[in-house]
Each structure stands twice: as structure tokens, then as C-alpha cells.
Computed example of a mutant assay.
Amino acid sequence: MVQIRDTEGLTRAAARGNLDEVRRILEEYRLHPDTVNRFGRTALQVMMMGNSGVARLLLEKGANPNLQDEGGIAPIHDAARSGFVDTLRVLVEYGASVNVADRYGALPIHLAIREGHHEAVEFLAPLSDLRHANASGQTPVDVARVYHQPDMIRLLFDHIRS
């Protein structure tokens, strides 16, 4: 039987970005990577988003890239909000949907635009539903306007037209 300390150790190691410790815990305790900690969160949901190696390992071991928390946040939302393009690439490679909405209707691209992560927007734009409106009725172009991102507006229009 898996003890709480084992699942806590996995999520702690993932949150710190400690690839070797994540690997050791998964193998030693034979945990499924979607095992939740006492807060109901998986290692992929709490991982250090800038560590694409941890993401790849968890996904290789069977983590669900589209698992959402109670707020509708999936790991791809966190990676987009933080601007970690390498992690976005890994998540998409393993089946993460770029068109999953959080409880506010925001797609990952909405969050990347809001935070000013141009490279993340460049990656997400050709894959995203650019006509999708969040709960406030804003499409990605609208969000770019609100946050005064003229380069992103042009980029988005180029993808809408193509």
C-alpha cells in the first residue's frame, strides 16, 4: 500500500524540479505519476514548469497531460502562463490539448498573451482555436489588445487569415 509520504515526496521532488528524485520515487514505490498528494494535486500539476525533463519523465510514465484541477487548470495552462515553451512542446507532444479551457474559459494562449510571453504565443497560435472567447467574451486577439501587445495582434491575425 502506498503511504502518504511517498506521494508527498513525489510531488515535492517534481515541484523542486529534481528529475533524479522523481525517477527514484516512481520506480522505488511503483507509483503511478497521476497519484495525488494530500492537496489533490499530481506531480505534473505541481512540477517546476521550467523543467521539461521532469514533464517528459512523468508523461513517459503515463501521467495525464490534460488532467485539470478544480479551477479547470491543466499543466499546459501553467506552462503557458509561465512562458516555458520547452515544457509546452513536451506537453503537446504527449497529447496535451491547447484548446482546453479553464473555469474562466481561458485557453493557454489567452494566458500566454496576458503575461506577454511572445515565444509561447508563437508556438500556441497555429495550434489554438483563435476564435475561442473566454468567459468575458474575449478572443486571443481581444486579450492582446487589452494588454497592449501589437506584435501579438499581428501574429494572431496572420494565423487567423491562413
Rank of each mutant, 00 (worst) to 15 (best):
R131E: 14
R114K: 15
D86C: 02
T139H: 03
D142A: 13
R38C: 10
R12W: 11
V143K: 03
G95D: 06
V36E: 07
D129Q: 11
Y104A: 15
A80Y: 02
H32G: 15
L91W: 02
V143L: 03
Y104W: 12
G72W: 04
R30M: 04
A125F: 15
H110R: 01
A125Q: 07
T7N: 12
G105S: 11
T11E: 06
A96E: 03
V54I: 08
L59F: 14
E28H: 05
N64R: 09
L127C: 09
A14L: 09
E60V: 08
M48Y: 00
Y29H: 06
H159W: 11
A96H: 00
G95W: 00
R56S: 07
R5P: 03
P75Q: 07
A14R: 07
T139W: 05
R145K: 14
L107R: 02
R24M: 12
M1E: 02
V143C: 00
A55Y: 07
L10R: 02
V92R: 02
E115D: 13
I113M: 05
I76T: 00
A14G: 13
T42E: 06
H118S: 13
R24D: 15
V146Y: 14
E93M: 07
I113T: 04
A101Y: 09
A14I: 09
D34C: 15
A96Y: 03
V22C: 12
R81V: 08
A63W: 01
P140Q: 00
L19F: 12
G83F: 06
E21I: 03
H110G: 00
D34S: 14
D69P: 04
R16E: 11
A144M: 04
Y94C: 01
V36G: 02
A106I: 02
R5E: 15
F84Q: 06
V85G: 01
